[in-house]
Design a protein around this nucleic acid. Structure first.
Lengths: 342, 342
DNA sequence: CTGAAAGCGCTTACAG
DNA sequence: CTGAAAGCGCTTACAG
């Protein structure tokens, strides 16, 4: 048995097969441009097999400039939504023999830029979810970014290849739905980090409320965790004399935190307060009153995004690639008051 | 502005600073063994800074044999428990400037061996969670594994550096607790993949039941997802005339699926059926009746594991390192029937 | 069809 | 204190 840690190299095979390393390389890479005697080919292949040869990817990367790795950048690595994205990307990459390395933005600009730059040298391209502002800064500010970037999500940057998720329609549907269910004091609950005035969910919320002659009200809270949302909502409830009767949450993590807060308060869902989240993550289906949510088309998003990335890597001069997908409302018990309502 | 994609190299700095690449390398690496004129040092540093030089990690890796990456292998990448592990590891690695690449076993032996071998060339060592059998096969069967391996979890392999989580105590406590709450028909619910006869939770369950003179009963189901657990439990309930009155679940994902199944059946928790999970993931706290669980000491496990790995990488000849940690029962509403019970 | 040579971007003995 | 040279393990024009 060979010594652990010392792997075979091209030269080992070359020596044993009595050919040059160049020939071994050509055989192993199946290069079609140079025909190789089938006797040579067979011999090399057999020996490589017997020696359990595995190419040194690092060396290959150094000379070819290709690492066969893609970087995936998500806002929060621990979000169930991010998990869904990682799984989908992984699934697309697997058959290609490519690897994946994940980086979390953690809501911090410098962290993002630093983390992504570190990735620059080790991946062939990156797929970033949301944070249009950061992606733009990354690619447009000097020194730019040396590898292909595909921006995906509801907050994607259209200056590069992108897969945009249209969230406005789903969000408007969510608010309309709450109104139809009889809600009048509908609050939008959003973590600080996602509370931009021009964000799609917020815009849809505000315009739908306005169209119905209702007063919009925001609960913005600092920490975008389940716990952060729970505590923030409890605090909000404590300082108001009256609770809202409808809640639209920026994402499912928030929705779950708020759900728990409502139970803490002994409030009935949806009878007293109706609740809608956003993302479509699995965990929303397992509470007592499954939570309505806007389902992101994660699989298609990743499939298209990775497809764009692959093509961009192979053909750097391709014209800008873009796609539009839609997220749609999925109504569940947490917001369904009347029987027979669709 | 420099061309995107073409990064500065050592030679760029060397040329501009009028020194050899060797000197630049020494300055940038702060090698203490060879003193360098501070004038030279300053000049090089200034120029490197101005040029925005970033070393090519691939090239460094090829020559030093160190990638400053660790591989993390988890049974299921999408388990919330895995997310917790990734976050903890990431946190330990960050200050060191190290990277992380994650691989999921997905319950498949060949997948595991193949995936981990692919990692071999690109990481300085790996941290694997559970799957003692696979880890053992990996390191003990020819051709072995060329990089340090630290095995962690309740099902770790002690033939390499390891951090073992003692689960038997917590599991026994869980079953005793259910018995104290008045449960008599207590079922252990476990996904196929974790249903080995000698697994700690199962052993503790069986012996605690036996000690109380109760009949053990297993529900083993094929797909270890929330949904898989839910459907399996519903099917199980449908073919029995009487439901169990206590459920001990192999992990929190299972517990959440079973929780949902119980709600589907209109069963009260914990009044009709008391429920305990295992892992200590966040999501168990957000359902209406927060789920009791055995809390894994994830943070300590990762801290110790990464510490062992670092030391092993620096000193390959170190004697075997090992640590033992304990997971303990956390009782919540899903299994607390009497008021005042601890 | 195959090989000798150069080179990817670094680091590290070895000299001086 | 600093440089010339070799080399990490590959791939790829360039010859033949």
């Amino acid at each position: 048995m060979r010594q652990a840690g010392s792997r075979r190299t091209l030269h080992d095979i070359a020596r044993e097969a009595q050919v040059s390393p160049a020939t071994v390389s050509r055989v192993l890479n199946g290069r079609l441009d140079s025909r190789i005697a089938s006797a040579t080919r067979d011999r090399v292949l057999r020996i490589a097999e017997r020696l359990g040869y595995e190419p040194n990817r690092i060396a290959q990367a150094l000379v070819t400039g290709r690492t066969h790795m893609v970087g995936v950048v998500v806002p929060y690595r621990w979000y169930p939504f991010a998990t869904d994205v990682m799984d989908c990307v992984q699934q697309r990459l697997e058959p290609l023999g490519w690897g994946m390395v994940v980086e979390g933005t953690e809501g911090d600009r410098e962290w993002f830029l630093h983390g992504v730059r570190r990735l620059e040298g080790q991946v062939d391209g990156i797929l970033t979810v949301d944070r249009c502002d950061l992606v733009q800064a990354l690619v447009d500010d000097p020194p730019g970014f040396g590898k292909p970037v595909v921006s995906v999500g509801s907050d994607c940057y259209r200056g590069v290849d992108h897969v945009s998720i249209e969230l406005g329609r789903g969000a408007a549907d969510a608010v309309s739905h709450l109104i139809e269910q009889g809600c009048r004091r509908i609050v939008y609950v959003v973590p600080q980090i996602s509370a931009h005035p021009h964000e799609a969910r917020r815009l849809a919320y505000e315009s739908t409320m306005a169209a119905a002659g209702l007063e919009p009200e925001l609960v913005v809270f600092p920490k975008g965790t389940r716990r952060g949302a729970r505590e923030a909502f409890l605090a909000h409830a404590a300082e108001r004399r009256r609770l809202p009767d409808g809640l639209f949450c920026c994402n499912d993590v928030t929705a779950l935190g708020v759900y728990r807060a409502l139970r803490d308060l002994g409030v009935r869902i949806p009878e007293d307060v109706a609740l809608v989240g956003c993302d479509g993550t699995d965990e929303t289906q397992y509470v007592d009153r499954p939570i309505s949510t806007i389902v992101m088309p994660v699989a298609q998003m990743c499939e298209q995004g990775i497809g764009f990335l692959q093509r961009r890597i192979d053909q750097p001069d391709l014209p800008l690639q873009g796609a539009e997908l839609t997220a749609s409302l999925c109504i569940r018990e947490s917001s369904r008051r009347q029987v027979g309502d669709s």
